[in-house]
Write a protein that binds this DNA or RNA. Structure first.
Lengths: 158, 158
DNA sequence: ATAACTGCAAAGGCTTTGCATGGAT
DNA sequence: ATCCATGCAAAGCCTTTGCAGTTAT
């Protein structure tokens, strides 16, 4: 089987070796439900493989994404985060601390229908994320104040 | 009037000066419908203000966003883009070339209702972007092949 | 005089890449 | 032997920041 990577290069799935590094990275990511960044995962993996390098983490996360084992969350203006669950699902992001959780609703399969006939694009899909405050930041006065200002200018950066 | 910036610092709206740089940056951005990156806008502004610096572009784009004059599109895993239209609206992004256009549909105001009672977050809003191929890339064989692979693995990075 | 703003260049944060080495087939 | 994968460090890219000089009030 073959895949195309981000730069449109062919990746031959069957030539991949399940190296120890690759396996541990995948295992540790699958254990998390926190959608870690590359360096967070690096710290975790380092407990099992002390000599692993950050470059290897990045290379494998990209590869695992290309072959569809995991997904890369390229989220609005922040560090990339990685998700061990490959099936499509939405996320909720805390606008104050950046925490990301799964959004417990089913994919909206017919959203792109709304665009039929209204755009010159060939529409293939959509990306949806919910914004809000996580339970911890909901307790934090400053975070609430910040979030209220965001509500006043809902289109600013988060 | 006061606003909070990204780092939760107070910005006093009434102390802002409409300098020539700030005005030209805003004017040129408002002329565009291409959602330019900072450096694209820099090139445009430089035609009128040859000595302007990229730092000034970034500083003003952030400021104008904070006071709600424009919006910063912090889009999945790419350079920031800026939009002279401050009202909420969605975008369509070409997964191959990165081009971004406005999506001609009205905001879905009741989307977050679906999350009521299902999450510990205080939900405040959502972000939605459509993915597809722009008319030019729809003609490009390689782009179409790439997009088809994305469809096979709909959760990879774009 | 004060405070905001600018240009310039340097620093920063995150990610990718080159290269020599190591390991599996 | 070949080719993929790794560790390390350097480079890259975009963005932010420090600072000295400038401008408006």
């Amino acid at each position: 089987m073959h895949c195309l990577d981000k730069k449109n290069h062919l990746v031959s799935n069957d030539k991949l070796r399940m190296t120890q590094q690759r396996r541990v990275i995948l295992e540790e990511l699958r254990k998390e439900n926190t959608h870690p960044t590359a360096d967070q995962l690096y710290e975790t993996v380092r407990k099992r493989l002390p000599h692993v390098s950050l470059g290897t983490i990045y290379r494998n996360l990209e590869l695992l994404t290309t072959i569809g084992e995991i997904q890369t969350l390229e989220i609005a203006g922040s560090q990339k985060r990685y998700d061990g669950v490959a099936q499509q699902h939405y996320h909720v992001r805390c606008v104050y601390c950046g925490r990301i959780d799964d959004a417990p609703i089913a994919p909206l399969n017919r959203l792109e229908d709304k665009l039929y006939g209204t755009t010159v694009y060939t529409i293939m899909g959509h990306r949806l994320e919910f914004l809000g405050l996580c339970p911890e930041c909901s307790q934090n006065e400053e975070a609430v104040r910040f979030a209220e200002h965001l509500l006043a200018h809902p289109n600013g950066p988060n």
